[in-house]
Amino acid sequence: MRTVHTTVNGQRVVADVPDNTLLVDFLRSQLELTGTKESCGVGVCGACSVLLDGKPVSSCLTLAVFADGCTIETIEGMADDNKLHPLQEAFIRCGGFQCGICTPGQIMMAKALLEQHPRPTRMQIKQWMMGNLCRCTGYYKIIESIESAAEGTKS
């Protein structure tokens, strides 16, 4: 058991976790932040993507103790009060989701992308988002959503 001090979506969290806990389970079961999903469990699908100190990670391959001393951002922290983040708005506007199970991961990954490249090219979007699988949309509208969000925030 270890005590983990972290900041989750802007809130200080101090929690005791067994050493062998995965970050995805810590978030979902212990903190009840179930917006982060788990699917492949091997780092391929990206459904479990969260930002650790601003950097995207697969929470299914990350030990919860790695969050000690770090900030975590999850989908639950994207909207400001009730105001959606421009990416969230764009995903709705452009139809960048269907079943929605991949969507939290897509949005977290896209957030990290726009922080590094506020105006990404289509190729940059594709390369960056390659690790986030979506079985429903065929990706076209996800690309469109990210482009649309980038355009909206550019001015």
């Binding site: 780092g43 990670v57 960056w128 390659m130 690790g131």
Partner: peptide
Amino acid sequence: VATVRIRMM
């Protein structure tokens, strides 16, 4: 190698 997220880890 793999994808951006994996390369970051």
